[in-house]
Design a protein around this nucleic acid. Structure first.
Lengths: 206, 206
DNA sequence: ACACTATTTAATAGCCCTATTAATTATTTG
DNA sequence: CAAATAATTAATAGGGCTATTAAATAGTGT
């Protein structure tokens, strides 16, 4: 029978892998690096995960799940549309702040390894379509009552995601351009969160 | 004396490198792949560019320059602020459309190889600051005359860039989520360009 | 303590990749 | 055409990386 141990080693490996995959992507992260990071023998990495590819997939699946669920389960209260939007935008931004490297990795690995698209899609099922059409209906209702302009749900979502994501995906570039320190960048993030809400809400006015 | 030849081979190598670097990034592109793509011996790649790193830098510098200059030299006519914004947004979108993989590569390589940040920054000089402060002044003037709300130039630029860029950086994901074919995606791009202009202009209303 | 299983390590096979070298073919120039 | 230079290739050194194997160590249940 399998031991119910604290599996610290396996976890440590996953954590180290996460860190390095985030930092360098799949190809530039080596199992030897991971082992060094953990402080264990390189063979252990293979002992627990057989191949680097499998290790990556564990990590990747973890992250995708975390991201999706967190995004869905917010801002579903019964209030005004504006307030719900605000909540969703802010929640999304906060998740990103906790996982700043995630969107980059998502884009990166799905772009460079088309094979992963299938996995990704499968992991979502037809949830996207359901969500989109529900959201479309909600927008239509609001529009009909003259509170917002008519807009496609997909467009609105893309706008939100893009504006939130840019700060994390382009942070080395933005830092390089503005010369902002890490601390200043944090402040910039705070302002940016507000600004994104502002931009989206204003863009929705009838 | 150096021959003034058409240097097709060298160019071919750069082109192949461009294609492959775009598709797979630096680490996953091998000089052997490039040679195969060109149809020449792998040693030739090194003959012309010495190292893979140098080859990458040639390509990278090329692209950054192209991108920056194209962005600056548009929408500087004397018309209304709204029209100028529209032009800039659309021009930016069009450049991206011609170089759909470029922003991804920019983010990718600058993120994973911090050493390149220096090069990148150097290649820009203090142009960013000049542009930003000029733009800030323009916005201030418009705001004072009550035509738009007050906003930081950097925020406005980030919003524009992010909304334009998302369609190219996340295209495999968006395709996977919406199930759009390449043709449908092209249509989506057309709509999206308009939508981005709309969103930005509306968000600027006083 | 013993047998058994799980964890960890050392060593290494085998592969692929970069970069170099030396030799070969093509091109240019006087 | 002959000599010189450029372009191209074949071959390979050398290094690094993944994955495997076999052996050693730790841990568990009886």
């Amino acid at each position: 029978m399998k031991k119910i141990k604290d599996s610290t080693t396996e976890e440590k490996i996953l954590e180290a892998a996460e860190k390095l995959f985030y930092e360098r992507g799949f190809a530039m992260t080596h199992t030897t690096d991971i082992a060094r990071e953990v402080g264990c023998n390189q063979a252990l990495v293979h002992y627990y995960f057989r191949t680097k590819e499998k290790l990556f997939e564990s990590f990747f699946q973890n992250k995708v799940t975390l991201f999706i669920t967190a995004f869905i389960s917010t801002g579903n209260e019964e209030t005004t549309f504006d307030l719900k939007m605000t909540r969703k935008i802010e929640a999304h931004f906060d998740i990103l702040r906790k996982n700043p490297r995630l969107p980059f990795l998502l884009f990166n690995e799905i772009s460079t390894n088309p094979q992963r698209v299938a996995n990704f899609r499968a992991s979502l099922g037809d949830m996207p379509n359901l969500l989109l059409s529900a959201f479309d209906k909600e927008i239509e209702k609001e529009a009909q009552e003259g509170r917002i302009r008519r807009v496609k749900a997909i467009d609105l979502i893309l706008s939100i995601i893009s504006m939130n994501v840019i700060m994390f995906i382009a942070d080395p570039i933005i830092k390089a351009l503005t010369g902002a320190s890490d601390k200043e960048y944090e402040k910039m993030l705070d302002r940016r969160k507000q600004e994104n809400v502002e931009t989206i809400l204003r863009s929705l006015r009838p």
